[in-house]
Design a protein around this nucleic acid. Sequence first.
DNA 1: ATAAACCCTGGAGTATACTCCAGAGTCAAG
DNA 2: CTTGACTCTGGAGTATACTCCAGGGTTTAT
Lengths: 116, 116
Amino acid sequence: MRIQQLSACTGATIDTLRFYEKKGLITASHFRRGENGYRSYNDTAIERVEMIRRAQSAGFSLAEIAELFDLWDSERLSDDLIVAHLREKQQQIARKIAELEQIQQYLADKIQRLRG
Amino acid sequence: MRIQQLSACTGATIDTLRFYEKKGLITASHFRRGENGYRSYNDTAIERVEMIRRAQSAGFSLAEIAELFDLWDSERLSDDLIVAHLREKQQQIARKIAELEQIQQYLADKIQRLRG
DNA sequence: ATAAACCCTGGAGTATACTCCAGAGTCAAG
DNA sequence: CTTGACTCTGGAGTATACTCCAGGGTTTAT
């Protein structure tokens, strides 16, 4: 799959995809280079981009997402260490969910009052 | 309450508070001006700032938050219209929660695999 | 009354996350 | 073999959300 196709099926622009690569969010494991120098993406790239968009929409910065992916893809860290870090991220996400639920509650209250 | 105290009890810097004001997130209803021109905040300002931080951490831009607050504080819109808009926001939040839960699931799966 | 600590405005500077070229090479169709 | 659609890199430009002055006035404590 070439860059335009990945762009089409993820909704991210071509420039954005190259930007993510520069930031280390898309790596060698997600594409290879043809003899002409063109990027040729495999299917894991789609999943990656979708994950980036999800995490971003949920309030994570690209730096935080990169951190998560490094952990995710890590070969050199001990499993226990990775698990510990992943648990930390889970807690971070749990906090974000709690924040959203609190806003949700405010909205529900407001709606209640308006509807009498 | 003066600006330093609001800063202290919300964690937002003084510059940030003035910035929020410039963006219309903190309004005349949250403070008055003393004779010296100093801002004097009431307690609703604390709630406001905390709400901004929560929403922001959950992935909303200041523009989106301002939109929500406009709705919230609106006197001139019909109640039905406000309710409709608030419901829209609720759905937006529900989507964000779903995204976070999906990431949460990925993390759980990864942890499962690592723990054998 | 003067120093230290606070407040004000306006504007410049920074980090993040894109977005948009310029200038160049590649490839498929006619 | 040229035209049009695609690709590349590097760098400049933009929007958002701060962050940090400069240059001024105010308040509080000594």
